[in-house]
Amino acid sequence: MQSDSSTCPCSAALSRQLLQQKFLADFATTEHIAKITVANWLLEQGSYATRTANAVSPLLR
Rank of each mutant, 00 (worst) to 15 (best):
G46F: 04
Q2F: 15
K22Q: 14
R16H: 07
S15Y: 03
L14G: 01
A28Y: 02
C10F: 09
A25P: 00
T37G: 06
S47C: 13
S6L: 04
R51E: 10
T30Q: 15
A34V: 01
A49P: 00
A25D: 09
Q45M: 12
A53H: 02
A34M: 10
V56G: 03
L19C: 10
I36T: 10
Q2D: 09
T52Y: 04
D4A: 15
T37C: 08
N40G: 04
N54H: 10
R51Y: 02
S5P: 00
K35R: 13
D26M: 07
A55W: 04
A39K: 13
S47H: 07
L14V: 06
N54D: 14
Q17G: 06
P58T: 02
L59A: 14
E44V: 09
T29Q: 13
L42Y: 01
T52A: 14
M1D: 06
A49W: 00
K35W: 10
L59C: 11
K22Y: 01
S11E: 07
K22D: 08
Q45T: 10
Q21T: 05
K22M: 05
Q20F: 12
L42G: 06
L59S: 13
Q17W: 08
T29N: 14
A55F: 04
M1I: 02
A12S: 11
Y48R: 05
V56L: 11
K22C: 07
R16F: 08
D4P: 00
T37R: 15
P58G: 10
D4T: 12
W41S: 01
T30M: 14
I36F: 03
T29M: 14
G46I: 05
L42M: 09
F23P: 00
K35L: 15
A34F: 05
A13N: 02
D4L: 15
L60Y: 02
S5H: 06
T37L: 05
T50N: 11
L19E: 03
C10G: 00
F27D: 03
D4E: 09
L14I: 07
W41R: 00
E44P: 00
L60S: 11
S11P: 00
K35E: 08
L43F: 03
S15A: 15
K35V: 11
